[in-house]
Simulated scan of single mutants.
Amino acid sequence: MLLLLHGLAGHCGEWDGLAGRLSADGYRVVALDQRGHGASERRPEDVSRAAYAEDVLGLVEEYGAGGRRPVVLVGQSYGGLAALLAAARRRPGVAGAVLIEAGPDRSSPEEVAGVVEWLEGWPVPFPSREAAVAYFGGGGAGEGWAGGLEQRDGGWWPRFDADVLAASLRENAVRAWWEEWDAIDVPLLCVLGEKGIIRAELWDAMARRQSGLRGLSLPGAGHDVHLERPGEVYGVVAAFLREVLGGDARPTRRACAGVDSRA
């Protein structure tokens, strides 16, 4: 089974293409709207990284039949960090992790401030879905970002509150996650964009500390490599799954899950 985790300000629907292909291969696939996003609780009290990791592990327990069915975590950016932290807990059932444009390094306060400024600067409501696609750069990435919006009150609005996401970023500016990185003992694959956020020196440090780390950088791709180059991402993820899970040919199921910390 696979559990797909979107990045900051994303949504489970951005995985539809990958989920469809992997379901056709015989894998059970679940995509999560992470807390504060999409269909999950919009204003959770706890937006710590530990809370996001526990959400992931809760779904591993639920869909992985208490550790009897192996689960591979696939996460992009902020979802990749959630996958990293969940894998570091060494809970039964986590069989591997694919980190797309994600790693254990901290962000600078300036980088965090830049992301928050970008989120708060969205010209919402967008007058049309087409306008949103254009604002987000068009192509697969623009379609993916626009797919997370909802139509209401005469326009297209994000399904998150920017202040909640800003709060969830604060922890990244004060610490790194190398201790957790070192604790991971399952197969790891990193998929990067040449123009993404994982610098060469960071990749070298990651590889030194996880000797079995597999990695692929797609030339010309950016941070949203899973939206920009879905076919190539599918190919490398599918090969990794064959190695980690074998056939895993179970009755397929695709689902988009949400979390509510009040439940």
Rank of each mutant, 00 (worst) to 15 (best):
L2R: 11
L5W: 10
G7R: 11
A9M: 02
A9D: 01
G10S: 09
C12F: 10
E14T: 04
G17H: 15
L18I: 01
G20W: 02
R21P: 02
R21N: 05
A24D: 04
D25Y: 11
G26W: 06
R28Q: 00
D33I: 01
Q34G: 04
A39M: 07
S40C: 12
P44N: 00
P44H: 04
E45K: 07
V47R: 15
A51Y: 14
L57S: 10
L73H: 05
Q76F: 10
G80Q: 14
L81T: 06
L81S: 11
A82Y: 11
A83I: 02
R89K: 03
R91D: 15
R91S: 14
R91C: 07
V94Q: 11
G96K: 09
S107E: 09
E110Q: 12
A113P: 01
V116G: 11
E120F: 07
E130S: 09
V133R: 10
V133Q: 13
A134T: 10
G142R: 12
Q151D: 06
Q151C: 09
W156I: 00
P158E: 09
D163T: 05
V164Y: 14
A166F: 08
R175Y: 05
A176W: 09
W177S: 15
W181V: 08
L189P: 02
R199S: 12
A200E: 10
D204L: 08
A207E: 11
S211W: 08
S211P: 04
G212T: 06
R214Y: 01
L216N: 14
S217T: 10
L218E: 05
P219V: 05
G222V: 00
P230F: 04
V233H: 10
G235Y: 14
L241E: 09
L245D: 00
G246H: 01
T252P: 02
T252L: 07
R254M: 11
G258L: 13
